[in-house]
Amino acid sequence: MDLLCLSSRCFRVARVALVPGLLLALGACAAGDSSNPAAVSPAAVAAPAAAPVPVSAATAVPVSTTAVARDGLAVLIRASAVACSNASAGTGCTAGDADSGDFYDVELSPDCGDQGFFAGVAEAKGVETLDAVPGSGSKASATAKLSKGQLVCVQGIGRTGQNPLFYYVVAIPANTVGKCKGNALCDTYGDRPISGMKGTRGEACHVAAPGHYAGNCAQGWVSADTLEVFSSGM
């Protein structure tokens, strides 16, 4: 009996000892089963994709001055109603009626920066700017009325021979002209009332790039004798 009891007790002891080992083995199998979602480690979970970093105004690539100048020349050719044999360079330009012989050789210069050509309205009654050079069969119409004392940048010169007869001008804000600072000429000529402007919708006249302007700038052809040209520069 004692031996039987001892055997029974030994059997029970062995069964109890096997249970923890069996549980550990089952746990190890469960941990190694990749099909079990609970077994996926946090490190295996893919991190969310980083949001793209927006490009700020400070890091944006600016429009080049060369591109603005090139576009400015094309705009000037259209606005001044001239025809050029080499439009990309702005050379070989004429205004008027070439067929009738009533035309002008035109020199274009869209730059209104340090190398710009400036003048002031000297006509007591002011002057109207025209969308084309007056001539035979011309249908030139006024685009604006500039008051006496208005500072202008000369962007085109219409000549017969060597004599300038018409200027294509644009009225620009005097405080944007670098050469006006401390210059007595800009006390006499500066910002004056402008009336009768066509196409006043959109932005006000402003600097688009050094020496180049965009927006609603009063511009057009005027007779050469209505201006005081700063032949010696500013």
Rank of each mutant, 00 (worst) to 15 (best):
A44F: 04
G199N: 13
D71W: 01
T66E: 15
Y189P: 04
G113H: 02
K145A: 11
N36V: 14
A214T: 07
K145G: 05
S141Q: 06
V16E: 12
Y168A: 00
F11I: 13
M234K: 02
K148D: 07
C180L: 06
S41E: 12
R12P: 00
A124R: 08
L227N: 00
I77S: 01
P54T: 05
L3M: 03
A39S: 15
V169Y: 01
R12G: 14
P173F: 07
L23V: 13
Y104A: 06
S41L: 13
H212A: 14
Q155G: 03
A144M: 08
G211Y: 01
A224C: 00
D131S: 03
S64Q: 06
P110Q: 09
Q115R: 15
A208W: 00
S109A: 15
A60Y: 00
K181D: 09
L146S: 06
L76R: 04
K148Y: 00
T188S: 07
A50F: 04
A57S: 10
V127A: 13
A44Q: 12
C5F: 03
V16C: 12
S41R: 12
L146G: 04
A83D: 15
G233T: 04
L130F: 02
R159Q: 10
R201V: 12
E203P: 11
S231E: 12
Y213H: 05
C29R: 10
S7I: 14
P193E: 10
G196V: 02
F166N: 08
D71L: 15
V40M: 10
V68K: 01
D105A: 15
I157V: 15
L4G: 11
T160Y: 01
L130M: 14
R201P: 02
G158E: 11
S231M: 08
T160R: 07
Y168V: 03
D99W: 00
A224W: 01
G126K: 05
A87E: 14
G32Q: 07
G190R: 05
S223Y: 10
A51K: 07
P210S: 01
V53W: 02
F118I: 09
L22K: 11
P110W: 02
G135Q: 04
S7M: 15
P54K: 07
D2P: 04
S41K: 12
A67M: 06
K125M: 14
D2K: 04
L26I: 11
A98N: 06
S147R: 00
E128A: 15
V61Y: 00
G211E: 03
T91W: 00
C217L: 07
H212G: 11
T176F: 08
S136N: 11
D187Y: 04
A50P: 14
